[in-house]
Simulated scan of single mutants.
Amino acid sequence: MIKNKRSLVTSLSFFIALIFIKPSTATVYEIESENKRLIGEPIIHTVVKGDYFQQLAEQYDVGFLALLAANPEHDPFLLKVDTEVVIPNQMLLPFISRKGIVINLPELRLYYYSPEENKVHVFPVGIGRQGLSTPLTSTVIGEKRKDPDWRPTKEMQKRHFAEHGEYLPDVVPAGPNNPFGKYALRLGTSEYLIHGSNKRFGIGMRASSGCIRMYDDDIKWLFDNVPVNTKVRVVNQPVKMSFENGDKQLIEIHQQLSDLETTKGNVILTKAMQRFVGTNREYWQQLLPVIEKPHGLVVELAK
């Protein structure tokens, strides 16, 4: 009986903590020059009693899967006190022009480049699950909507009926049951949106039907600061590379999304990557474990 009471207290504490977690808003990085792509600094978090991965992901405004990949030795729900967790807050900018919004699907991150400052705002995002991938595209923010209605598509209705034996309502108005949350930004004139969510989980994961999910505070910031007609590029770059200061060779490898149309075979070993790493055997030996199990952290190739 005492054991059951303790378990109940632990469970209640878990859910109370979850309710009161408040994610920080965008992580902002200075861009030193057009020639540099490395931003941020690695953060080491020392675990205290009650810490778990979802709470840390929201606290540091990073994705759940990014946290998991960077710390494969940890149990995400039973972290040991005084152990260290790597917070993946250092990264290389995607290889694309630094304008507007860039969403790199394999790393589950959204970058917004300030038009009047040398700064980039970085957010974790949830994207389409396997079989319902978020499409690669070049478009603009076509519309912004506060308190949007949610109208499930015919395909969603069919899937929900097949899985649950009942249809979804035709329209879900703004409120706690609305999957879009409080704000939505439409990609062009398509059915795909960047939006909030009525669920705490799924940010930084492949969990949506193709739309791009964000934490409530993050989507509010984007809604308030990004105008209609802002350029948006959704890209697939599982490998990012950079020569920093003309000498440092840096590489960042993420798990590839095998169901994207542009992904054929092993995208990790591209010709660009082979040219970048070269023929140095020590470099390849250093990278082999990362290629086999990508952790999404910046690696400096060193002899």
Results as ranks from 00 to 15, higher is better:
M1K: 10
I2A: 09
K3S: 13
L8S: 14
V9S: 14
T10C: 00
T10P: 03
F14K: 15
F14C: 02
A17M: 11
L18E: 15
I19C: 04
F20P: 03
K22W: 07
Y29V: 04
Y29H: 09
E30S: 13
E30A: 14
I31E: 04
E32M: 06
E32G: 14
S33H: 01
K36L: 13
K36S: 15
R37T: 07
R37V: 01
P42H: 05
T46P: 05
T46V: 15
T46G: 03
Y52K: 08
F53L: 11
L56F: 03
E58N: 08
Q59N: 08
L65K: 00
F77P: 01
V81I: 13
D82A: 09
V86R: 10
V86C: 05
L92V: 03
P94F: 08
V102P: 02
N104L: 00
E107F: 00
L108H: 07
L108D: 05
R109L: 12
Y111I: 04
Y113G: 09
S114W: 11
N118V: 03
P124Y: 06
V125D: 05
I127F: 02
Q130K: 13
S133P: 02
L136C: 02
K144P: 12
R145C: 07
R151T: 11
H160M: 03
H160A: 14
E163Y: 08
E163K: 14
E166H: 12
A174Q: 09
G181L: 11
G181A: 08
Y183V: 01
R186W: 11
T189W: 10
H195N: 10
H195W: 08
G196W: 02
S197V: 05
K199V: 00
I203R: 01
G204P: 01
A207P: 07
L222T: 02
L222N: 04
D224G: 02
N225R: 11
V226T: 12
N229V: 03
K231P: 01
R233H: 06
Q237N: 04
Q237K: 01
N245V: 00
D247C: 09
L250K: 08
I251K: 09
H254C: 06
S258Q: 08
D259Y: 07
G265H: 01
N266L: 03
L269T: 10
L269K: 09
A272T: 11
M273W: 03
Q274C: 12
V277F: 07
T279C: 01
L287R: 11
V290M: 01
V290W: 05
E292T: 07
H295C: 09
H295S: 11
G296K: 03
G296W: 02
G296P: 04
V298H: 10
V298G: 13
A302L: 08
